[in-house]
């Protein structure tokens, strides 16, 4: 049984290493290899979840929830820090989407292979449709009413 743990952790570690180093531009990987790394990571997660390894699964869920919380806090800081309406929408629109999706994925991992996971998957899919549409609608309304965008060098609004 210990072998299974090592295999699952190994798969997740290799996948996460390639994805993180590619993401932060420490190493250059082609998109194809990043896709393979993603699939490797997902296989490791499914292995751990399917065999009911509570230790690994709970750690992963906590990591995903922490990543989601980090992105949402960053979005809030951006909302307070950025100079005008449009740039603030950039901060909230993107960081919130990814933060929510990370949190939902964390809950999916926590609840394992069950119907709750399927429903949470649909929730995540609807986030991906709803957030960009709402951001675009607010942006268009602001632009149509003639709000001037901030340029580099202007004073803060």
């Amino acid at each position: 049984m210990l072998t299974v743990d090592i295999v699952a952790i190994g798969l997740m570690a290799v996948g996460a290493f390639v994805m993180l180093t590619g993401m932060l531009n420490i190493m250059k990987f082609r998109d194809f290899y990043i896709g393979i790394a993603g699939i490797t990571f997902i296989i490791g997660v499914i292995l751990a979840v399917a065999l009911g390894r509570r230790g690994i699964v709970d750690t992963l869920a906590v990591l995903f929830l922490a990543a989601g919380a980090f992105f949402i806090i960053t979005g809030v800081i951006g909302l307070l820090k950025f100079p005008d309406f449009y740039t603030r929408l950039h901060a909230t629109g993107k960081c919130d989407t990814v933060g929510q999706i990370f949190i939902v994925v964390g809950c999916m991992i926590y609840s394992g292979l069950s119907l709750i996971s399927v429903k949470l998957f649909f929730v995540a899919a609807f986030y991906l449709l709803a957030y960009p549409s709402a951001t675009h609608a607010i942006m268009k309304a602001a632009y149509a009413t003639g709000l001037k965008p901030w340029k580099k060098g202007d004073p803060r609004m």
């Binding site: 993401m23 932060l24 998109d31 990043i34 896709g35 993603g38 980090f70 992105f71 960053t74 979005g75 800081i77 951006g78 820090k81 950025f82 950039h90 901060a91 993107k94 960081c95 989407t97 990814v98 933060g99 991906l128």
Partner: peptide, 19 residues
């Protein structure tokens, strides 16, 4: 799949600009 990868990159990019 490519798009989801780009979304995560986008969030990191915006987070770097915020910080």
């Amino acid at each position: 799949t490519w798009e989801i990868w780009q979304i995560i990159l986008a969030a990191i990019d915006v987070a770097a600009r915020v910080l």
